[in-house]
């Protein structure tokens, strides 16, 4: 027990945090786009599952991991189109259509898995790529700069998403559509088109979240592989207050508490394992309680837009 807080331990916790945070980052940043435009997509987990399956299937049969990512993105896009058609064009209640999408993704992925693959198999997924120079920094180098490409991608996504949402006209349009669709419409912004775009972008990223699991982090597919991570990702969007950096903070907090609780179990800290597993969930709520999050949600969140209605 003497090495409980050694540098190696800390490194292990951080490495584990980065890996655990990766799918959350993709999915939650994607959901940030959808929600900023005013659409709550509760079907993230279903998109992740079907894409994780698709990516795994392609990787298993072709060995081409890039094609696998592309497949995942394409499946995400298709499911995003389905979600936006139902929620934007048909103006369905978003909570219900998202749950439908989740059930469909869960069922379809395990059905296809059973028919086309049959049993659990593993692949050689994305291998860690050590970034030259940075990766050689003693201590933090191997922790931060020795990961697979989809992991780096997740972290690059954060500043890009922030830049798009905060610094571009596209981002402005997405926000205005989520805040006041009627005003945006009167300014000549095509509300539906922006919402389609945002939901589909979110779904593509959810697809990549699934692929990052099945081709980079666990290198296999199984029934209900995500085990509800898509729902956590939705929660993290609220945690982050629709800001990519905040979302990243939430993903880090959740993941680091998770890797710390695993570490506590390994070194035999005397608390029941179930309580340890609860910690990330408890602390995420607690963190939000003390930071007093007064960010207003997009005013038109969860509201379909009908022209001339308001």
């Amino acid at each position: 027990m003497k090495d409980v807080i050694s540098l190696g331990v800390l490194g292990g916790i951080l490495t584990s945090m980065i890996r655990l945070a990766t799918p959350f980052l993709y999915a939650a940043i994607g959901e940030t786009f959808a929600q900023t435009s005013g659409v709550v997509n509760l079907g993230v987990d279903g998109i992740m599952l079907l894409s994780a399956y698709g990516a795994f299937y392609v990787a298993l049969n072709t060995g081409n991991l890039w094609l696998a990512l592309l497949t995942a993105a394409a499946i995400g896009l298709l499911m995003g189109l389905l979600m936006s058609f139902i929620s934007v064009t048909l103006k369905a209640e978003q909570g219900i259509s998202g749950i439908g999408l989740y059930m469909f993704g869960l069922g379809m992925s395990s059905l296809l898995f059973k028919i086309t693959i049959g049993t659990v198999k593993t692949i050689d997924g994305f291998q860690p790529v050590r970034i030259p120079l940075l990766g050689d920094i003693p201590g933090i180098g191997p922790i931060l700069f020795d990961h697979s490409l989809p992991v780096y991608g997740a972290f690059l996504l954060v500043p890009i998403a922030w830049w798009v949402l905060d610094k571009t006209t596209l981002g402005l349009k997405i926000k205005s559509v989520g805040q006041n669709p009627a005003a945006a419409d009167s300014l000549g912004i095509n509300v539906d088109r922006i919402r389609y775009f945002s939901v589909c972008l979110g779904a593509v990223l959810a697809g990549l979240a699934g692929a990052s699991l099945s081709t980079a982090l666990v290198d296999l597919f199984q029934d209900n592989l995500t085990a509800g991570q898509g729902f956590i990702a939705v929660a993290l969007v609220y945690f982050g207050g629709w800001n990519p950096w905040g979302v990243m903070g939430g993903a880090f907090l959740f993941s680091i508490v998770n890797s710390i609780q695993l570490w506590m179990q390994v070194i035999g800290v005397k608390i029941p394992s179930d309580v340890a597993v609860m910690l990330p969930y408890l602390l995420t709520i607690a963190a939000l309680m003390i930071t007093v999050n007064r960010v207003r949600q997009p005013a038109a969140l969860n509201k379909p837009f009908e022209r001339g209605e308001s």
Partner: peptide, 16 residues
Amino acid sequence: SDVALMTAAAKTHIQA
């Protein structure tokens, strides 16, 4: 069913 957390747990054991 949580494969990702299981993977993280196994990696923690290896780290230890």
